[in-house]
């Protein structure tokens, strides 16, 4: 009886619109649970934002924040005049766009084909193998790539030479390297990317296929007229999200796959920031570049979200 009473009491109080103290007292356990995650987020995600001020200072590590002079947008001017920055920006966009063109359709096609497979063990085995590259580090992938495609000792070139061909500089000539960069990315992400489409395909009403079969539709017609239209919204959301990330750049893939002979294409914003900032200690320049990239990135994500919502999809933010 006593318990019931307190429960009704609480609901009444809630409707009264009690102050924060009331909720803190009632749900203190939930707030305690949130405390550590909240502190982590504040310290490691929000606090670094203060460091962005370096981009506006004549910052020297020895002088520290206090001793550095405010110089407005001078650093940004310097960055936008730098040739290396444009190369890094161009490469970031180039590699991301190529990734999108080749890497985006691959999982869709693979998922549709996987869905056509009836043999259970075959499907399970191939899926296990196809997901595997996603779980490998870029260090390992780069190691595997160089073992296979190195100019002389790489096995692929060994085979080519034995068959009387000339070696192909897969990873040591810049245009070949770009192609390999994209293909290795497809290799790594294609299988994993199918999961979301396979999930969407599972959600398609089986009656649609039955009705189509009765109407005499063949396999390709069913793919074209049922599977693809049902995947449309998933594809659109994934595409928009990918477009929102077109300015993004992570260090590991270009850094591990790169070599001195291809830096003209492999130097992206992440590697540029690492080199200029942490290796050459030009903190303000690297911060300004990172700031610019984040800003454009956030704007692109917001635009992508808005577009998705305009098209009647769920959006991502």
């Amino acid at each position: 009886m006593k318990k019931e009473k307190t429960v009704t009491e609480k609901t009444v109080k809630k409707k009264d619109g009690k102050g924060i103290a009331f909720y803190l007292k009632r749900d203190w356990q939930l707030y305690v649970l949130l405390l550590i995650p909240f502190l982590l987020v504040i310290i490691f995600k929000f606090l670094p934002l203060a460091g962005l001020s370096i981009a506006f200072l004549d910052y020297k590590p020895i002088k520290g924040f206090a001793g550095s002079e405010f110089i407005g947008l001078e650093v940004f001017e310097k960055v936008f005049k730098s040739r290396d920055f444009y190369i890094a920006l161009k490469n970031t966009l180039l590699l991301n766009i190529l990734d999108l063109l080749v890497g985006f359709p691959a999982p869709v096609i693979l998922a549709i084909l996987l869905n056509e497979i009836r043999c259970k063990w075959f499907k399970r085995t191939t899926q296990t193998i196809l997901y595997l590259p996603h779980f490998l580090s870029w260090v390992i992938i780069a190691g595997l790539a160089y073992q296979l495609f190195a100019p002389l000792s790489g096995y692929v070139n060994v085979l080519i030479t034995r068959m009387g061909g000339n070696t192909i500089p897969f990873l040591t000539e810049k245009y070949h390297w770009v192609v390999m960069y994209v293909l290795i990315g497809v290799w790594q992400g294609m299988g994993w990317g199918t999961i979301i489409y396979l999930a969407a395909i599972t959600g398609i009403d089986a009656e649609l296929y039955e009705a189509a079969t009765v109407d005499g539709a063949g396999r390709w017609r069913k793919i074209w007229n049922i599977t693809l239209p049902c995947l449309k919204s998933t594809i659109i959301v994934m595409l928009i999200m990918s477009l929102g990330r077109i300015m993004g750049s992570s260090l590991e893939r270009p850094y591990t796959l790169s070599n001195p002979m291809v830096t003209q294409f492999s130097d992206v914003i992440a590697t540029y920031v690492y080199r200029v900032g942490l290796q050459n200690s030009q903190y303000n320049v690297a911060t300004a570049v990172g700031f610019f990239q984040s800003l454009v990135g956030v704007v692109l994500v917001l635009i992508a979200d808005r577009v998705a919502k305009l098209m009647g999809e769920d959006g991502i933010v």
Binding site: L34, P37, F38, V41, I43, F44, K45, F46, L47, P48, L49, A50, G51, L52, I54, A270, V273, Y274, G277, L278, Y283, A286, T287, V289, G290, F291, Q293, S294, G297, V298, V301, V317
Partner: peptide
């Protein structure tokens, strides 16, 4: 509000150098 604060972190980062300074 709390959810928004947590989720916001997915879409921006201060960058390598500010992280390093922190």
């Amino acid at each position: 509000v709390l959810s928004t604060i947590f989720l916001m972190t997915m879409y921006f980062s201060a960058g390598t150098i500010p992280d390093y300074m922190l």
